[in-house]
Amino acid sequence: DELEKRVKKIARKLNLSLDQVEEWLKRNNNDELVEAVKRLKKK
């Protein structure tokens, strides 16, 4: 979905793993995208 695409884009842009992106999003209080990261990690 759109949020998952955004997460992947962030990960690529910042050259981070999904775990690192998740931490980064949590620090930025971006719950919506944190949920998207969790969905991606399950895939």
Rank of each mutant, 00 (worst) to 15 (best):
V21C: 06
I10W: 05
E2Q: 09
K38G: 04
L16I: 07
D1I: 13
K26H: 08
E35C: 13
K9M: 15
E32L: 11
R6A: 13
A11P: 02
N15L: 05
N28Q: 12
K43G: 05
R12M: 11
K38N: 06
E4T: 06
L25M: 06
R12E: 09
K26S: 10
A36H: 03
E32M: 09
L18Y: 08
R39S: 07
L40H: 02
V21Y: 03
R27F: 12
E4F: 07
K8I: 15
R12D: 08
V21T: 04
L3P: 04
E23C: 15
K43F: 11
L3W: 10
Q20K: 06
E4N: 04
V7Q: 01
R6S: 07
V7I: 11
S17L: 07
V34K: 05
K41H: 03
I10S: 00
V37M: 04
E22A: 07
I10M: 08
N28W: 14
N29P: 05
E4R: 07
L40Y: 04
R27D: 08
R27K: 12
E23M: 09
Q20H: 03
N28R: 13
R27S: 10
K41R: 13
L3I: 06
L16F: 11
L25T: 00
N28V: 11
S17P: 05
L25K: 01
W24A: 01
W24T: 00
K42R: 12
R6P: 00
D1T: 10
K9H: 13
V34D: 04
D1S: 11
D31G: 08
N29K: 12
R12L: 10
K9Y: 14
K13R: 14
R12K: 12
L3S: 06
V21K: 00
Q20F: 04
A36V: 09
L14K: 03
K43R: 12
K38D: 03
R27N: 11
N15K: 12
L40R: 02
K26R: 13
V21L: 15
L33N: 02
E4V: 08
Q20A: 09
A11D: 00
E23D: 10
N29S: 10
L14A: 02
V21I: 12
E2W: 13
A11S: 05
I10Y: 04
K42L: 09
N30H: 15
K9Q: 14
L25Y: 07
L16R: 03
A11C: 15
N29R: 11
N30P: 04
D19K: 07
E32R: 09
D19E: 08
S17T: 13
K26G: 06
V21H: 00
E4G: 04
K13I: 15
K42M: 10
E22G: 05
R39M: 05
L18V: 03
W24S: 00
E32A: 12
E23H: 07
E23W: 10
A11E: 00
N30G: 08
V7G: 01
N30L: 15
R12F: 09
K42D: 07
K42V: 09
L14D: 00
L18C: 11
L25D: 00
R6F: 14
D31V: 13
Q20L: 07
N30K: 14
L40D: 01
E4A: 07
R6E: 13
N28Y: 13
L33S: 01
E35I: 06
E35V: 05
E22P: 01
N29V: 07
E35G: 05
K8A: 14
K43E: 06
L16N: 01
L14G: 02
L16K: 04
N30R: 14
N15M: 10
K43V: 06
V21G: 00
D31F: 14
L33D: 01
N15W: 08
N15Q: 10
R27P: 01
V37Q: 02
Q20E: 14
L40G: 01
R12T: 07
E23K: 09
V34N: 04
E32V: 10
V37R: 02
L16P: 00
V34W: 11
V37A: 09
R12V: 06
L33K: 01
D1M: 10
V7E: 00
E35K: 09
N30A: 14
V21E: 00
K26W: 08
L33I: 04
K38V: 07
L18A: 03
V37I: 11
L3C: 14
E4L: 08
L3E: 08
R12Q: 11
L25C: 14
I10P: 01
D1W: 08
V34Y: 10
E2K: 11
E35N: 08
K43C: 11
L16Y: 08
E23S: 08
K13H: 11
K9L: 14
N30D: 11
